[in-house]
Computed example of a mutant assay.
Amino acid sequence: MTQITKPSSSSTLSLARLLDTFSAFIDLAAGFAADLRERLTRGAAVRLVEAEDGVFTLALPDGTARLRLDDPTPFPPEIATALKGREVELALDPARFLFRPLELPRGAAAFLDGIVRSQIDRLTPWSATEAAYGFTPPQDAPDDRLALTVAATARARLSPLTDRLKAQGVGAILVTTQAEDTGAPIRVLDHAASGAASGVAGVRRVLLGVLGGAAGAALLALVVSGFVGGSLDTELEDITQRIAAQRRALVTARDGQGGTTVLAALERRKREVPAGVLVLEALSQVLPDDTHVTELQMEGDRVEVAGVSREAAALIRLLEQSHQFAEATFVAPTTRAAGEAGERFHISARILLPMEAMR
């Protein structure tokens, strides 16, 4: 019987939680990047202020312009240029809004947004989804309470105004008004431009593409490093084996097991090539005490000696009579310099091999 093992619920939950966390991180990064790009690309905010007759005023560099947002005629070129890609604050006439006072316990200060939202259908004729609303900063009230003013209107009443501005390609729309009693500004609606959501989606796609490319590059590098590492391991193993073989050959030669040829060559070289220390010692025994050697050169079985001696001619006889040297001759004439007590000499002689010296 074949047994089917199901994945544990804990591993499935961990994977889902990891994917949710990654998606939230991408959304947060995309939103931040899109907002930063929007702030860098759009110009400074402009303010449209509504008067009681429904006419809006707009401050321009060369004066003030007046316009109506409920008029379908196109905006003049200077106004369209001033609004293009800019953040627009739409300061509406308070007559468009319904104002209601609201008192709350002081402990509700941290939850004002949720509390006001839950109270909209009680304070106004509209539900929270149908209303565009805001409230003034809370003020201290007696009995340890907070007092604020809620301003609300139907979203449908604001749509013609915001749609007209969106058609002009504005960057973002902020709808505000002022409380009738205190004159405090109230932020009613913060509407991003139509391209903001697509901008966030575009940045999200770019981030996912970059992360996907980085993951692909990392995977490719891992695969390549695996192949290269395997090849290097093979070469290292081959070199190690060759070193081990050479080491075994040397050990075998040292122990005399099949390495007689190498040992014989070393032994023959030791017998045939005179040691420099032995040659120097032999010269010190042959040459008299009044002779000073300044130069000594060895090449094969020949040695050349240069220096100063009281009787340079006698050195040839002394070298020939020794058992270490033969065929001694002057390489250069002897000379005598002013102020020196002896003659300068340069002699060449053949070094007798160890076997020849024993005869």
Score class of each variant (00 low, 15 high):
I4T: 14
K6F: 08
P7D: 07
S8A: 13
S9W: 00
S14T: 12
L15T: 11
A16G: 04
R17S: 12
F22Y: 08
F22S: 09
I26H: 03
G31L: 07
D35M: 04
L36F: 07
T41I: 07
R42L: 12
A45E: 09
V49A: 12
V49W: 01
E52K: 10
F56D: 02
F56A: 06
T57N: 03
P61M: 05
P72G: 10
T73F: 02
I79N: 09
A80M: 05
V88P: 04
A91S: 14
A91G: 02
A95Y: 03
R96N: 09
R96L: 14
R100E: 12
P101V: 10
L104P: 09
L104D: 10
P105L: 10
R106M: 11
G107F: 05
G107N: 11
G114K: 08
S118V: 04
I120M: 01
L123R: 06
L123A: 08
T124W: 00
T129M: 03
A132T: 09
A132I: 08
Y133S: 02
Y133F: 15
G134T: 11
G134K: 01
F135H: 13
P137G: 07
Q139A: 15
P142C: 06
L148P: 13
T153G: 15
A156E: 14
A156M: 02
L161Y: 15
D163T: 15
R164P: 05
L165C: 10
G169Y: 12
A172G: 14
G183R: 07
A184G: 05
A184N: 04
P185E: 11
D190M: 05
S198K: 10
A201G: 09
R204T: 13
L207M: 12
L207H: 09
G209W: 08
L211H: 03
G212R: 02
G212T: 10
A218S: 11
A221F: 09
G230Q: 10
S231H: 10
S231M: 08
D233K: 13
E235D: 08
E237T: 15
E237D: 14
D238Q: 13
Q241K: 13
A244N: 11
T252G: 15
D255Y: 00
Q257N: 14
A265N: 06
L266M: 06
K270H: 05
E272R: 09
P274V: 10
G276T: 11
L287G: 05
D289E: 10
D290K: 00
D290G: 02
D290M: 01
E295P: 00
L296W: 03
M298D: 01
E299N: 09
V303R: 00
E304Y: 00
G307F: 02
R310C: 00
E311V: 12
A312P: 06
L315T: 02
A326E: 13
T329D: 10
F330C: 07
P333A: 13
F345P: 07
H346R: 15
L352Y: 01
L352N: 08
E356H: 04
A357Y: 01
R359P: 13
